[in-house]
């Protein structure tokens, strides 16, 4: 499982203030905490704190001063990415494009040039998909496009678009069905990723819902996840689901070994 730590995000008040005040220590602290919790990527999101490329680059630099993990750049504006991608010491994950041709043609040249990866949200100009079929159709468009740019399937992370259980209860099944079909595009398949916490928006039992849905998604091919990597029970659930899917070799101390 590829863990993408979500915490360096200006949606959180402390990060937003840190960006405005250029307080690198806060960024570094959350970076370190997530790295210690075994994040594979650190997601960096400028949110509404700024729209200046130099602020995004500054965040990336702060993260890279603390750890040598790759960055997930949570931004889809070419003007920002043109500056931010070259700052990354390791090929980053660009988060994200939609299946909109115009958007893809703007972003993919930057991604391909730097041997980076990209998250493909399976939505298009018309908005979010509401069926498995629409998800697969959009995924197919993105897949074909990255091939045109000479990228390999492992540079693509397809996101089936997780929707809130509480408000769109019919969608979870469509998401699972869609994700299962993304795996059929190629062998080896592209990655399947999601922003997990959307499923539990507005609910009371957020953590439980996140855990259960993570396990169900893993059974349908999920191999990367944007999450609160410090949610120990969630990570344990994911580790276990991965073993149940025979993605790794079981050992009695598999949980402890992961945290070593």
């Amino acid at each position: 499982m590829i863990f993408i730590g979500e915490r360096v995000n200006a949606g959180f008040k402390d990060i937003k203030e840190a960006i405005i005040n250029k307080d690198g220590d806060v960024i570094k602290e959350w970076t370190r905490k997530q790295a210690d919790a075994k994040a594979d990527y650190i997601d960096v999101n400028l949110g509404t704190a700024s729209n200046k490329p130099e602020d995004l680059c500054w965040m990336i630099e702060m993260v890279q001063e603390e750890v040598d993990l790759p960055i997930s750049i949570d931004n889809n504006k070419p003007v920002m990415l043109k500056e931010a991608v070259p700052v990354c010491k390791k090929p980053p994950l660009v988060n994200s494009t939609t299946a909109d041709d115009k958007k893809m043609d703007e972003l993919l040249p930057i991604v391909a040039e730097h041997n980076a990866s990209i998250i493909g949200l399976v939505m298009d100009e018309a908005g979010s998909p509401n069926s498995a079929d629409k998800r697969v159709e959009n995924a197919g468009k993105i897949f074909a496009k990255i091939m045109e740019y000479g990228m390999s399937p492992d540079q693509l992370f397809l996101d089936p678009i997780v929707m809130p259980l509480k408000f769109m209860q019919d969608q979870a099944r469509e998401i699972l069905k869609g994700a299962a079909q993304f795996q059929l595009f190629s062998d080896p398949p592209c990655h399947i990723v999601c922003g997990l916490s959307n499923i539990s928006n507005g609910t009371t039992h957020k953590k439980l819902i996140n855990r259960v849905f993570a396990a169900m998604l893993i059974a349908n091919g999920l191999d990367a996840v944007i999450l609160d990597v410090m949610d120990e029970e969630l990570v344990n659930t994911i580790l276990t689901a991965d073993l149940i899917m025979n993605k790794g070799i079981y050992a009695d101390s598999y949980i402890e070994a992961f945290r070593k």
Binding site: I249, Y250, A251, A257, K260
Partner: peptide, 8 residues
């Protein structure tokens, strides 16, 4: 599985 466990 034991092989992995011994290494752990």
């Amino acid at each position: 599985n034991i092989g992995k466990q011994v290494n752990i």
